[in-house]
Amino acid sequence: MEEFDSNFENVSIELKRGLTNLVVLSQCKQPTYGYELVKSLDEKGFPLDANTVYPLLRRLEKQGLLRSDWDVSTEKPRKYYQISAVGENFFERLKVQWYETIEIVKNVIEE
């Protein structure tokens, strides 16, 4: 049973991992910083660790899907991320593909 749970956990993580880009991009319509995103995703039932979110935001920025600005007005400087024009285009296509995939997978697994 322990092995079953562990396998299930691994597969479940893999499934979620494929969706993190889509979910994170969806939450960056407004400028947001890493920990704000971590908390908001947790509240919405899609918890991601801070050590996953911060590097992911940076990778998405490198890919040109997000842009960032440092807010140095507070005691602790914060880097705010927001979706770029390219990112929005990317997100829309990814969203369409996700919905299509749901339909297809649903049909397949419920045959």
Binding site: Y33, G34, Y35, A50, Y54, W70, P77, K79
Partner: peptide, 17 residues
Amino acid sequence: KDVSLEIDEMISSMLAE
């Protein structure tokens, strides 16, 4: 430098939490 500032901010937020 950039990543240091980001991780520093992340740790501070987690500490505040």
